[in-house]
Amino acid sequence: MRVAFYGSSLLSSYWNGAATYYRGIIRQLHRLGHEVTFYEPNVYDRQKNRDICPPEWCRSVVYQGNIEALRSVAAKASEADVVVKTSGVGFEDEALFDAVFAAARPGALKIFWDVDAPATLAEMRADANHPLHRQIRDVDLVLTYGGGDPVIAGYREIGARECIPIYNALDPDTHHPVRAESRFTADLSFLGNRLPDREARVEQFFFDAAANAPSEKFILGGSGWGDKPMPDNIRYIGHVPTKDHNAFNVTPKAVLNISRESMAQNGYSPATRVFEAAGAGACLITDTWDGLDLFLKEGSEVLAARDGQEVAEIVQALTTKEAQRIGENARQRMLREHTYAHRAEELDRILTRHFEKNRIEAAE
């Protein structure tokens, strides 16, 4: 099928944590025979911070951040069998939603793909005039980055015809074990951009852990933390491009996952970093959240903590040998059950079923 995909960015992970998610899904869809065109706006300096060149497995279209360009690329939705608009594109999301689905031809499958569903649903519950209350009834299907049954129920309550989570996963061609690099040497590292609903949890789980383990070395990667006060044993290294993620994950004794507030409260929402780190064979420590055992077994494949004090205690007690064992167990679990090939096969079945239903209804 021909897929028109409107998202934040395929080419850059700069201020765009969903980049590797999009890449993993779309690359595997290509292998299954789908033709995907990804439309992304030139905003937030992402094009100046590309991680990849336009790939051979997806047609990439970058448009300028203005209404005229938006309308031009939205009109291209008429050429597709499947039209996807994601959340958080970053330029005139409401106008883009209306334009692409208005342009979709009769019988085309119209999908809203929410990569931050718990936060979106919280916003909608708090705002009766949120545009999605109106817009969600115009799409055939809602896909989400995760969220499990709570997100499915939430979207059905606001009028979605159907909601299906497509979880993050591992692309083993991209994220895998590599040689350690001394520039990333640490006892515990964390990678994440500074965001409003993440900052307090980073303070709680990472900064407090560093304060409670002053003899351990910590590394913080990600955009936006430069002016943030932090303990002296944290070394801030700024944005870490995708090409360095494997070394960033493999080198330290352990890496930390910290869920955003909305994701933690909802559960069932493992971040991309979980799969990247596990795929590289890193020993992962994560904040606790409901649904963790669907992806990794606590104790043998991942370590979980309720606060920064517990993170500190885990890091101080963790031996290199034990860390390596946990990391390898996690990697094997990912390869067995949680690759993007697994996700794309599931998505292929979903697209085929819904597109055939739409085709029949359009012909009647």
Score class of each variant (00 low, 15 high):
residue 181 E to H: 11
residue 182 S to A: 13
residue 184 F to H: 03
residue 184 F to L: 01
residue 185 T to S: 15
residue 186 A to M: 08
residue 187 D to Y: 05
residue 187 D to W: 04
residue 187 D to S: 08
residue 187 D to G: 08
residue 189 S to I: 14
residue 189 S to M: 11
residue 189 S to G: 15
residue 191 L to H: 10
residue 192 G to D: 13
residue 193 N to Y: 03
residue 193 N to W: 01
residue 193 N to V: 15
residue 194 R to D: 14
residue 195 L to F: 05
residue 196 P to G: 06
residue 196 P to I: 11
residue 196 P to V: 08
residue 198 R to Q: 10
residue 199 E to S: 10
residue 199 E to Q: 09
residue 199 E to M: 07
residue 199 E to H: 13
residue 201 R to H: 07
residue 202 V to A: 04
residue 202 V to S: 03
residue 202 V to M: 04
residue 202 V to E: 02
residue 203 E to V: 10
residue 205 F to M: 13
residue 205 F to S: 07
residue 207 F to S: 08
residue 208 D to L: 00
residue 208 D to K: 02
residue 210 A to D: 02
residue 213 A to S: 05
residue 214 P to S: 02
residue 214 P to G: 00
residue 215 S to H: 03
residue 216 E to G: 01
residue 216 E to N: 01
residue 216 E to A: 09
residue 217 K to S: 06
residue 217 K to M: 02
residue 217 K to C: 01
residue 219 I to Q: 07
residue 219 I to H: 09
residue 220 L to C: 09
residue 221 G to Q: 07
residue 221 G to F: 04
residue 221 G to Y: 01
residue 221 G to K: 05
residue 223 S to M: 05
residue 225 W to R: 05
residue 226 G to Y: 00
residue 228 K to C: 10
residue 229 P to V: 13
residue 230 M to Y: 03
residue 230 M to V: 13
residue 231 P to A: 08
residue 231 P to Q: 05
residue 231 P to S: 08
residue 232 D to N: 04
residue 232 D to F: 00
residue 233 N to M: 03
residue 233 N to Y: 04
residue 234 I to C: 12
residue 235 R to D: 09
residue 235 R to S: 12
residue 236 Y to S: 12
residue 236 Y to I: 15
residue 238 G to R: 09
residue 238 G to F: 04
residue 238 G to C: 09
residue 238 G to P: 12
residue 239 H to G: 03
residue 240 V to G: 06
residue 240 V to T: 14
residue 241 P to V: 06
residue 241 P to G: 05
residue 242 T to M: 08
residue 243 K to L: 03
residue 243 K to N: 03
residue 244 D to Q: 08
residue 245 H to L: 15
residue 245 H to K: 08
residue 246 N to M: 08
residue 247 A to I: 09
residue 250 V to R: 15
residue 250 V to M: 10
residue 251 T to D: 09
residue 251 T to L: 11
residue 252 P to R: 02
residue 252 P to E: 02
residue 252 P to V: 09
residue 253 K to T: 07
residue 253 K to A: 04
residue 253 K to G: 02
residue 256 L to P: 15
residue 256 L to V: 13
residue 256 L to W: 07
residue 257 N to T: 12
residue 258 I to R: 00
residue 258 I to S: 01
residue 259 S to I: 03
residue 259 S to K: 04
residue 259 S to W: 07
residue 260 R to M: 15
residue 260 R to Y: 10
residue 261 E to R: 14
residue 261 E to Y: 14
residue 261 E to W: 13
residue 261 E to N: 11
residue 262 S to M: 11
residue 263 M to Y: 13
residue 263 M to R: 07
residue 263 M to T: 14
residue 264 A to F: 03
